[in-house]
């Protein structure tokens, strides 16, 4: 084995040497100035040529210190990343978040709160048990703090740094950073549990097509589109949380443990994904908060007390209500929706 390896290595070495000689030979002929004197720089590298040849890639060499990141002499990608962080991300964030707020205010003015049309029946049915509500609110609390402390990194400096003064803004940002780092753990656990506990009701199916066709019932309030435990809109929210949360966790932990698993390009890419998905996530959650509070009568209590009015269920989740009424004996109820608490 050893001898064969040595043999292979010898052949590779010989080939490499032959290559170097072949490449170097013509260069050697040019190593002279027109007057015949030696021009030692003829084959030397020049910053501009090298940067052009690399087309914006990094210029790397060899260093004698253990930190191999130091072997990168110039990384022009930093300028692209700077531009993303200073300009692009801020625009995406502004448009997504302010745009969503304008949309929601406009929608509220147009449609107002979606009421329970047949009024309250006075009979309630369990929608989310204590464990589900605990996980929801734990994840939600973490999300809000993560969003505020994250957006502080994106927008804090232009908004508050001069108003608060550098010292105060740094003190706040330092605590915000600790909060962002530590709350990432319960948030990630929450996303995983949400994924597992609600996956059964969130697989897209044919009912969703009908629901979407009817515009979710938001456009024409007299119609009530079909839905089981979760309608197409809620399913979308579920997948935004599961996939968005996963993307945030992966890119976030890459940033929290810098250069453990990736290089400079990977770090910059992680930050870009984290930033873009983050601001879009915030915009999506604003819509979620809207519909769960002032957007719809009777919706908040599902996560508040855990029960909903039967008429609310009849209008927004008719198929689910039927399932529940039939009870587990009929094979209709989904495991997590057992009415006993």
């Amino acid at each position: 084995m050893r001898t064969r390896l040595a043999h292979i290595r010898f052949i590779i070495g010989a080939l490499a040497l032959a290559f170097v000689v072949a490449v170097a030979a013509p260069a050697g002929a040019q190593d002279r100035n027109p007057d015949g004197s030696v021009n030692p720089t003829a084959s030397a590298v020049n910053e501009e040529q090298l940067l052009n040849a690399l087309r914006g890639g990094a210029v790397s060499g060899r260093v004698t210190i253990p930190d191999q990141k130091a072997a990168t002499l110039i990384q022009p990608e930093g300028q692209v990343w700077r531009d993303f962080h200073e300009v692009t991300l801020r625009w995406i964030g502004l448009i997504a978040i302010i745009g969503m707020l304008i949309l929601l205010v406009g929608f509220y003015m147009w449609r107002g709160m979606v009421m329970i049309q047949s009024g309250r029946s006075g009979r309630v049915i369990v929608r989310f048990n204590g464990f589900e509500r605990f996980i929801h609110w734990m994840t939600a609390t973490c999300f809000i703090i993560l969003a505020i402390t994250g957006l502080n990194i994106t927008f804090g400096r232009p908004l508050f740094a001069s108003a608060f003064g550098s010292e105060a803004f740094t003190t706040w940002s330092q605590w915000a950073k600790y909060a962002h780092n530590y709350l990432s753990f319960p948030f990630t656990i929450g996303v995983v549990v949400i994924f597992l506990m609600w996956i059964a009701g969130n697989i897209p199916n044919r009912t969703d097509v009908e629901w979407v066709k009817q515009g979710g019932g938001m456009v024409d309030p007299s119609k009530h589109p079909p839905a089981y435990r979760f309608n197409a809109g809620q399913k979308m929210m579920y997948w935004i949380v599961v996939l968005g949360g996963t993307a945030m966790a992966i890119t976030g932990y890459i940033m929290m443990f810098p250069f453990y698993v990736t290089d400079m390009a990977g770090m910059q890419f992680s930050q870009i994904v984290h930033g873009v998905v983050g601001v879009l996530f915030v915009a999506a959650m604003l819509a979620h908060i809207y519909i769960g509070s002032i957007g719809m009568e009777g919706a908040f209590e599902a996560m508040g007390t855990g029960t909903v009015d039967e008429n609310w269920a009849k209008e927004h989740h008719p198929l689910w209500l039927e399932e529940q009424k039939k009870g587990p004996a009929a094979g209709g109820a989904r495991p997590m929706a057992t009415p006993a608490e």
């Binding site: 002499l73 930093g78 962080h85 780092n181 530590y182 443990f257 400079m264």
Partner: peptide, 26 residues
């Protein structure tokens, strides 16, 4: 003032910023 976020290192063309710790929980 520095909070040790590491952003200056991502932007610096010359890899100049250095950090005393690699990533002690952020």
């Amino acid at each position: 003032l520095c909070i040790g976020c590491g952003y200056c290192f991502y932007a610096c063309p010359f890899g100049a910023p250095q950090y005393p710790r690699v990533g002690n929980f952020g």
